[in-house]
Design a protein around this nucleic acid. Structure first.
Lengths: 192, 192
DNA sequence: CCCATGTGAGACATCTTTGTCTCACAGCGG
DNA sequence: CCGCTGTGAGACAAAGATGTCTCACATGGG
């Protein structure tokens, strides 16, 4: 059966292409289809055989980003233990996807009018639920809304991804910087 | 003298065009020159008479953004009083420019290779200096570098600007949300 | 009134990107 | 060896944005 060989190879290639595209577009969000193809080591024709067009590619990247985020959220076990620890696990798990996430986050600013991908709202809800849980257990303050904390998390992830890629901060500090700022803020804690 | 009438009108128009463009590009960063012109109530030809091309327009917007930030930093008197209060004043003063800033912040991610506008590094330095001062006075923790805090401030400003423009958070909470998260974090303070 | 200046409308060529198509070639299985 | 499949290279037209130019018009000052 040629079908099996076909679909397997295509699937592998498709995933490889997708990840190459993610890496490239993370750095240069305006990269052309030709550049994307070149970065994946294939020709533009073959790239078009995988993804009908640029829109399809971006939507596939969106699906990949959502998928990786969902996986990160699952791995972080947001429902278990103190919300504080859950946030820490979340950031640690989501770090590898931060670059892609930053690309999609800014990309989505253009889709203002269009339909919001259901996957994002689902992610938003899961993350916001974590913050809400932290508020209910008394770990988090209640004057900052879960929606804002979720948005802020995205912003910090994007900022940190860019800052790391430009060498302004060390990659190894990624999780620590985000978690500490998000949870603890810049103000020095009083010794208790 | 036709020169005076000319330059005065042009200067007024130019500023008006620039602010219209800022408003539009803040919402839709890929707006076309024609849309920019239409938004400013002028024709594409006239827009071209003010700004040689799209690059020139973006660079003028960059200059405007830098100028407004500098003004905000001046108005915030970063050197006076507790650093905590200075951060608060800074965010309050910079709020009107947050949308433009968000546009330029993401736009700058594309200029990775090119020369970094000296104006940005100057702003970065002034803001980082504020955080460093706060660390020296013992107000701020020292395990978060001034560079990261500066970057995080940009990220939070952009996130908040987008969240407000999409109605996910209330505009009146803008300053409070950013300042409280940046300084205090999400974790609830122990009652002292 | 007349003219200079700035403007709007639109035509136009150019450039870039995109999407489609064709053709030749390499690899692999039968 | 033959044929099938996927690929690369390139040509091609279409679309969109940009930059330039011309021309008619309005307006305001001399």
């Amino acid at each position: 059966m040629s079908h099996m060989g076909y679909s397997c190879l295509m699937a592998l290639d498709r995933d490889h292409v997708l990840r190459s595209a993610a890496t490239l577009l993370t750095r240069k969000s305006t990269a052309t289809m030709d550049e994307v193809a070149r970065a994946a080591g294939i020709s533009r024709a073959t790239l078009h055989r995988h993804f009908a067009g640029r829109d399809a590619l971006v939507r596939a990247l969106e699906a990949l980003g959502i998928e990786e985020c969902e996986a990160a959220l699952d791995a972080a076990r947001l429902d278990e233990g103190p919300a504080t620890d859950a946030v820490h696990r979340l950031v640690r798990e989501i770090e590898p996807a931060a670059g892609l996430l930053a690309f999609l986050y800014t990309e989505n600013q253009l889709f203002e009018g269009e339909v919001q991908n259901q996957g994002w709202t689902r992610l938003d809800d899961r993350i916001a639920a974590l913050f809400r849980r932290g508020q209910q257990t008394g770990e988090f303050r209640i004057d900052l809304t879960p929606a804002w904390l979720t948005e802020a998390l995205y912003g910090l992830l994007a900022s940190a991804a860019w800052a790391v890629s430009e060498g302004r901060v060390a990659r190894k500090d990624f999780t620590h910087m985000i978690v500490e700022l998000l949870l603890g803020g810049a103000r020095r804690r009083e010794e208790s």
